[in-house]
């Protein structure tokens, strides 16, 4: 019997196991929905995210230091949130899960619904993704500063659970940010000819590295979202006195 080259099939008698089709959209709606609600609550109902040397990623950079006291998080979070909202991975996630456009591949959609893709408002604004990337890179610099500061206690260098969380968070956020499709385009994707550009080996190596990270962009997107969420929640619980920071060193 014919056996095509490169056939991707399980061994005879073994069926390929797959999650039921609804798991992905339900999981995505639940996670993104809860994170959005949490973000709104955190942004609109708190005036500070500072606990000693820990600063919540929702409040970094701390705009209170330049005299802005009104909802300090709102002046910050718009950039990373819009960076995520226009991210190519999240676009796939919400078009599928929130708008059922399509819910899953090859699944019939509701007939008669007009579709304009990303050619009309509001989704055409997803083309501004690179601008939110630029602003997010600035925010990343502050987050790295905060992560370093999280290891400096009044008594000197130390390691707390919060320090480790903030470090893990900024590492995951950095990988997510710099594995982005817009950055990939910026470092080399826009070129037709690497060899014709200035610094061809560097441009090509950068593009190759970002391309490699980019293959797992979805994973970094989820991990970094949960790390932001977890870090903020931890600091919020420290501020409210529910938890006490554990010093490891």
């Amino acid at each position: 019997m014919a056996q095509p080259a490169g056939v991707l099939a399980p061994a005879p008698g073994r069926k390929k196991w797959e999650w039921p089709w609804w798991v992905s959209p339900v999981g995505t709606v639940s996670a993104l929905g809860l994170f959005s609600i949490y973000s709104v609550w955190e942004t609109l109902t708190h005036s500070s995210g500072q606990y000693h040397n820990y600063l919540s990623p929702f409040f970094s950079p701390d705009v209170r230091s330049i005299g802005i006291q009104f909802l300090p998080a709102i002046w910050v979070v718009w950039a990373p949130l819009l960076f995520r909202a226009t991210c190519y991975y999240y676009r796939k996630a919400y078009y599928r899960s929130f708008f059922a456009d399509p819910l899953t591949c090859a699944r019939p959609e509701r007939p008669g619904r007009s579709y304009t893709g990303e050619t009309r408002l509001p989704f055409v604004l997803n083309n501004l993704h690179r601008f939110f990337f630029y602003v997010t890179v600035v925010v990343m610099a502050f987050l790295w500063y905060d992560a370093v500061r999280a290891f400096i206690f009044p008594s000197g260098f130390g390691i707390g659970v919060g320090s480790l969380l903030m470090l893990l968070n900024v590492i995951l956020l950095s990988i997510y940010t710099f594995s982005c499709h817009a950055f990939r385009h910026l470092v080399g994707g826009s070129l037709d000819c690497f060899s014709c550009a200035r610094g061809p080996i560097l441009r090509y190596s950068l593009w190759k590295t970002v391309s490699k990270w980019n293959q797992d962009h979805a994973t970094w997107a989820w991990l970094s979202m949960f790390s932001v969420w977890g870090t903020d929640l931890y600091i919020r619980l420290l501020i409210s006195g529910v938890l006490h920071d554990v010093r490891l060193f």
Binding site: R91, Y95, D101, G117, E118, V124, N214
Partner: peptide, 24 residues
């Protein structure tokens, strides 16, 4: 060619028998 009509849901990439990364 209307590239803006694509909302990058990657179904094309999932079905490609040559495993071409069409979307990415």
């Amino acid at each position: 060619a209307g590239v803006g009509m694509c909302n990058i849901t990657k179904c094309c990439q999932e079905v490609c028998p040559e495993h071409i990364h069409l979307t990415d």
